[in-house]
Design a protein around this nucleic acid. Sequence first.
DNA 1: GTAGGACGTTACTGACCGGTAACACCTGGA
DNA 2: TCCAGGTGTTACCGGTCAGTAACGTCCTAC
Lengths: 203, 203
Amino acid sequence: MNETLSQPRRTSDAGAPALPPPRERILAVARDLFYRHGIHSVGVELIAEAAQTNKMTLYRHFKSKDDLVVAYARELAGEGDAVWQRLVEAFPNAPQKRLDAWVDHVEQILTDSCERGCALANAAVELQPGHPARTVIEDYKRRKRDHLVKLFDDARYRNPDLLADEVFLLFEGARISIQCGGRGPASRVVRMLRDLLSSAERL
Amino acid sequence: MNETLSQPRRTSDAGAPALPPPRERILAVARDLFYRHGIHSVGVELIAEAAQTNKMTLYRHFKSKDDLVVAYARELAGEGDAVWQRLVEAFPNAPQKRLDAWVDHVEQILTDSCERGCALANAAVELQPGHPARTVIEDYKRRKRDHLVKLFDDARYRNPDLLADEVFLLFEGARISIQCGGRGPASRVVRMLRDLLSSAERL
DNA sequence: GTAGGACGTTACTGACCGGTAACACCTGGA
DNA sequence: TCCAGGTGTTACCGGTCAGTAACGTCCTAC
C-alpha cells in the first residue's frame, strides 16, 4: 500500500533524471496536446497525467482550464516576441541582415513542425470571442504585424505598411493552408517572400 | 395536454409562412451556429431547437453529429464550387472579366459576413485529422487553388501556378487574420490583389 | 377511411469532463 | 525534532452532451 517513490523525484540524487517543477511540466504538456489535438479535445486530466502529476496539482497552479489556456497563449506569444527581440539584438544596426534572418526563420518554421499551422490562430478559432486568451492572441498578432512594419522601414523599403500586410498575410495564409489541403501552396511561400522583397521598391 | 399546432406547419394553408423541410432547416441552422460559435461549442439539442424541431428528427436525418458536420462541410464546399461554376458560365470566353468578377466577389466576402473567417478552415482547425469532414475540406481547398490556376492561365498570365499560390495564400491569410487581430491587414488585401494582378507578367 | 410514413414529445442512459474535498505523504528548513 | 508547504491519491459532485426508446400525432396517398 505504501509505495515508495509515488511522488516523481525532482532531486537528481538517484540517477533518475531531475524533473522540472510541476507548473512547467503542465504547461509544456498542455502546449503539445493543445497544439496537436485542439483545446476542446484535451481534458485537464489527460494533461495532468501526461505531465506526470494529477488534476489537483494542476488546479493548485491554474485557477481553471481557461486560466491554463491563457497561460498557454501567453507562453506562445512570449516566445514569438522573444524571437523578434533576439533578431534585433543580433543585428542592431544591420536591418538587411535582420530581414534575411527573419526570412530564414520563417522558412524553418514552415518546413519543420508546422503540421497544424499557427497554434495561436488555431486557439483563436476554438475560443469564443470574449475569452481572456483572445486578447492575448489579438495583441500578439498586432504586435507581430507592427514588428514587420518596423523591419521593412528599417530596411528602407518604400511602402513598409503595405509590404508588412502582404508578408503577414502570406505567412498566415501559408500556415492555415498547411493543415487544410497540404503543403502545396505553402511550400512555395518562402520563394515568394524572397522574390517580393527583392523586387519591392526601396528608398 | 393536446396542443393543436404543436407540429410546425409546412403547408401554407393558414397564413403561416411555409417552412422548408426539417433537414434543410437543420442544415441551415447548423451552418449558422457552427460558423458563429464553433462546432464543438454547439450541441445537437440546440441546433434542433433553433431549427424548430427536435433531436429525434435530427437523428432521423443524420446518423450522428459527425455526420451532420460532414453534411455541413459538403454544403459549404458545394456552394463554393457553385460560385466558380457561375463565374465560368457567366463569362465563358472572357477570362479577364471572369477574373475581375472573382476579385469583386472576394471583396464582397471580405467586407460582408466574414467576422469569423473561412468556415471550412475553422472546421479543419476544430476537427481531428482523420475526421471524415476533413477530406471534404482538403479536397475543396485543392480544387479552389486549381480553379485559380485555370483562371490565371485563361487570362494568359505568365506564371499561373505561382500567381495562384500567392493569391490563394493572401486570401486565406486575410480571412484567418480577420478573427485574430481585426481587419487591419485584411482590409487592404483587395487593393493588393488588384495591384498584384495588374503588375504580373502576361504572355 | 385506412395504413404508413414523417414528425413531435418525453424520458432516459452512459460517458465524459471541469472542479472540489479530505487526507496522506514527503521534503526542506528552523 | 517538528512544522509548514507542496505534492500525491482517492473519491466524489454536478453539469453537459451524444444518442436511443417508446409512444403519440399528423398528413398523405391509396
